[in-house]
């Protein structure tokens, strides 16, 4: 990937990532998250990982983020909960993040990595499938079990069990309150 295109996507990814954590409205955060994910997908494609980059767009943007959107709708989260006076932890977070970035950058600039040349089918679906159904077959099969457990678990956790305590709750699915 040429440096200019990389710089474009990298800048966009960082700005939208900041948008995710700094926006007040969860839906705006969500939109920023979508932009970040698409930028990362583009960068992956730039690293010759075409199939995985597109899978990232399909799985994350097409499915996982929609799930977030559903939950935001269900909970009717118009605004963020009020932030309490928590300057200390914010300061700590900023210092910690700066230290993390500094450490990783120092580490990264000192490693010299030469990029291997790869043949044309690198990152293709065929190569990926060959590995998944070859070396990683057991892990792949276990993944299906994980998904099954997750389905059962989510239904068990999120289902509205009949309970007198929940009988007179206000309905949670509604549009913005008319103030």
């Amino acid at each position: 990937m040429p440096l200019g295109i990389f710089a474009f996507f990298a800048t966009l990814a960082v700005i939208s990532a900041l948008g995710v954590i700094l926006q007040r409205s969860p839906v705006h955060s969500l939109l920023a998250l979508i932009v970040t994910l698409l930028c990362v997908a583009a960068l992956m494609i730039g690293l010759d990982a075409l199939a995985v980059g597109l899978l990232q767009a399909i799985v994350y943007v097409g499915a996982i983020v929609v799930l977030f959107l559903f939950v935001i709708w269900l909970l009717n989260l118009e605004r963020d909960p009020e932030e309490s006076g928590r300057l200390g932890i914010k300061l700590l977070a900023a210092v910690g993040a700066a230290a993390l970035v500094g450490e990783l950058t120092a580490f990264l600039t000192r490693t010299h990595m030469s990029q291997q040349t790869v043949n044309s089918d690198y990152g293709s679906m065929a190569q990926l499938a060959g590995l998944i159904f070859g070396n990683y077959l057991i892990a792949f099969e276990v993944t299906s079990l994980l998904l099954l457990v997750a389905v059962v678990g989510v239904v068990a956790v999120a289902r509205r069990w009949p309970s007198p305590r929940l009988a007179n709750r206000p309905p949670t699915l509604s549009a913005k309150p008319q103030t």
Binding site: A13, A17, I21, G96, A97, L100, L104
Partner: peptide
């Protein structure tokens, strides 16, 4: 690394 740090801060 930068994106990871931003996530951590979030």
């Amino acid at each position: 690394a930068l994106l990871f740090a931003i996530g951590t801060v979030g």
